[in-house]
Design a binder for these strands. Structure first.
Length: 688
DNA sequence: GTAGGGTTAG
């Protein structure tokens, strides 16, 4: 007799159980939910011990259990150990691969079946056909169609539906329709498949026509149509269908919400989200991802926090949404927390998650963690490698970026144009002009990738930073496309680094022509004049800006303390600890002035007197953030600040001095690079 | 059959 509960079995994996039908049933039931690798091994051992190895049902279920546990490699180990596997086992394995998105493996196993002359049945075809749909291997699909007819499965609606789906997924809706018309007993699923097949092929009016003709519709039929109109941006149509539905499920709501999300109507989206009767993980994911895409990072994090206290568990898609928000805000602690959450909750660590983690660590200034994630990643693709290259490049680790590129070539991972942006950036940050030019040539010659304006921008930066200003200028003049203002801006920055006022003036003329509204260019030129001691010109420029009614884009700095991100604007008084922050800032200023600090007012554009200028300067957003960091973290914690604009000369000096007199490491990420301030010097060597 | 995901020049 046996009365083992799953928990007792897992406590003592070697418990012997007698061979009774109860055991068989029990094992079958325990194979219905996901298991860890060790639990799977235990169950496998139990099955062998109980002598159930020849039981089709139990074994087939073990494979499917591996599939829902995301352990197909373990299933394959067991499968390969079996002599003459039965049809049922092949079917279970192919289904498992297909459910895990391993379509290639599914099709390979199908080929093996054919090679071993194992006869397929009507369960095999739909699963293999689904793999064909997802991998687009139309030749295999056509061969399968022939086989289906030969085997006499052609009249089964499940198989016919799978054929319709396969043809439409391969872009052959006419073939799909041909099969559809031949189906004698069409069920709703068959109709739905044909409709979504038309949608996949972009034949929307045929889809609508078929929907109108349907004898019976289910919720999915309606959902498909709602989704179709959402994807085409026709929200009124989607909305009226949604309102006309006899009943709605969570998918209907999600479809409509994501429609609003795609058109950026975040208020309408939020109203629906708050209104919906039940939310699932997709509902939360749509919301978080939409906020991230519309750069509302704080809202994204807020929603993630709400999700954690709701009864829905985040999954891998959620973290891929949240991590970029951490990355943009520089919220390293929260990012690390999310990483730990992924490990703790066994969230699937797929290549998307790993890419998002590398990007987050890189953007939060923690290259070593980014490298660790890269090295531990099981699957490495072009996105993952490009992200790693970009991270290493922005942190000045050009050699390591190059070796990732070498790795890609060895492994046959094809780079894309973004990969080269990362490589070129890596070169320009450390001044490797020749290597940069080599990569620039390589992308078109060897990889047939036409350089875009971004690549020209990188090369202008590469040449300009290294002091080859004229060459950079020539390159802009001879570019095959219109130079984007950013390209001119890059050259203007290079002029600033190398104090070339003459070229700067020329470049600024172009820039102001291209972007008359953008004040950044005026600011940069004015700073160049000030630096050269040409105050009159600087003042003239400032007056011009004032006349045009131009206002500077507000500087904004964020800092994370105890998982909470605080944002500061210049002169901001909205923070709850505002009073303490300003008092601390005053004390810091007094102390630094005693140590010889003189505010460097040249970069203040306002036409006001010196005292007022100082006030504006001393309340720059990064100064507020650093003051807040000093009062709310302990002595050893580095202070990490993220700023949306370039750091001004005065703040740069201010941070250097704090790093000496308060013995603090300060890491500031501005809009283009990192500044690591330690013991009074900065990692950018004052070139930024 | 139906909802959600990663890198980009200053």
């Amino acid at each position: 007799m046996s009365c083992l509960s799953p928990s007792t079995v897992f406590l003592s994996p070697f418990t012997s159980i007698s061979k009774t039908t109860t055991e068989e049933e029990w094992i079958s039931t325990s194979l219905k939910s996901p298991k860890t690798q060790n639990q799977l091994k235990t169950l496998h051992a139990l099955i062998i011990k109980a002598g159930l190895t020849r039981n089709d049902l139990v074994f087939g279920q073990l494979f499917l259990c591996c599939s829902i546990s995301n352990s197909m490699h373990y299933a394959r180990q067991i499968f390969d150990g079996i002599n003459n596997p039965k049809l049922f086992f092949y079917n279970a394995m192919i289904k498992g691969y297909s459910q895990n998105g391993a379509y290639y493996e599914a099709l390979q196993l199908y080929s093996l079946m054919r090679f071993r002359a194992v006869t397929c049945d009507s369960f095999t075809f739909p699963v293999v056909l689904r793999s064909v749909s997802s991998s687009g291997k139309i030749d295999v699909g056509k061969e399968l169609h022939g086989l289906v007819m030969k085997m006499g499965c052609g009249s089964r609606v499940i198989v016919q539906t799978a054929l319709i789906d396969m043809y439409c997924a391969c872009g052959l809706s006419t073939y799909g329709r041909y099969v559809f018309d031949a189906v004698s007993e069409r069920d709703v699923i068959c109709w739905n498949t044909m409709i979504s097949g038309y949608i996949k092929c972009g034949e929307y009016s045929s889809a609508q026509e078929l929907f109108d003709r349907m004898p019976v519709r289910n919720i999915s039929s309606w959902n498909t149509m709602v989704d179709m109109y959402c994807k085409r941006g026709e929200l009124e149509m989607a909305r009226s269908l949604f309102d006309a539905m006899p009943e709605r499920d969570v998918i209907s709501w999600n479809a409509l919400i994501s429609g609003y999300a795609k058109t950026g109507e975040s208020d309408a989206m939020r109203r629906l989200f708050d209104e919906m009767p039940q939310k699932n993980v997709v509902s939360w994911n749509v919301m978080i991802t939409c906020y991230v895409h519309s750069r509302q990072f704080m809202e994204a994090l807020e929603l993630f926090r709400m999700m954690l206290v709701s009864d829905v568990k985040p999954n891998e898609v959620t973290v891929v949404g949240v991590l970029p928000a951490c990355a943009h805000l520089g919220a390293l602690d929260l990012g690390q927390w999310v990483h730990a959450y992924i490990d703790r909750n066994r969230v699937k660590m797929d290549v998307y998650v790993n890419t998002a983690l590398i990007d987050m660590y890189g953007k939060c200034g923690s290259v070593d963690d980014a490298k660790r994630v890269f090295n531990n990643a099981v699957a490495k693709d072009m996105f993952l490698c490009s992200t790693m290259i970009e991270v290493l490049g922005t942190h000045g680790k050009a050699d390591e970026a190059f070796s990732i590129f070498d790795y890609m070539r060895r492994e046959g991972i094809k780079p894309n144009d973004v990969t080269f942006v990362g490589l070129l950036k890596a070169c320009s940050h450390v001044g490797l002009v020749d290597t940069g030019m080599k990569y620039f040539q390589m992308m078109s010659k060897e990889f047939k990738l036409m350089p875009k304006v971004e690549h020209y921008g990188c090369v202008v930066d590469l040449l300009g930073r290294a002091g080859h200003l004229e060459e950079a200028h020539e390159l802009i003049k001879n570019m095959p496309m219109d130079p984007h203002p950013i390209v001119w801006g890059t050259l203007l920055s290079a002029c600033r680094i190398h104090d070339n006022v003459k070229l700067a003036e020329e470049v600024a003329v172009h820039l102001i022509e291209l972007e008359p509204q953008s004040c950044g260019n005026y600011v940069l030129l004015s700073n160049i004049y000030s630096k050269a001691g040409r105050w009159d010109e600087a003042a003239k420029l400032r007056r011009k800006m004032k006349e045009k009614g131009m206002t500077k884009k507000p500087g904004c700095s964020s800092i994370e303390v105890n998982n909470v991100v605080s944002e500061f604007l210049a002169g901001d008084r909205t923070h709850p600890q505002c009073k303490a922050i300003y008092e601390t800032l005053d004390k810091i200023i007094a102390r630094l002035k005693a140590e010889g600090y003189t505010p460097c007012t040249s970069s203040v554009l306002h036409d006001v007197d010196v005292d007022e200028k100082e006030q504006v300067l001393l309340h720059h957003s990064e100064k507020l953030a650093v003051a807040f960091g000093l009062i709310s973290t302990d002595h050893k914690t580095p202070i990490r600040i993220v700023k949306n604009l370039r750091v001004c000369d005065d703040c740069h000096l201010f941070m250097k001095m704090i790093s000496i007199y308060y013995s603090r490491q300060i890491i500031v990420r501005d809009c283009s690079r990192f500044h690591h301030f330690t013991d009074g010097s900065c990692s950018c060597s004052d070139y930024w």
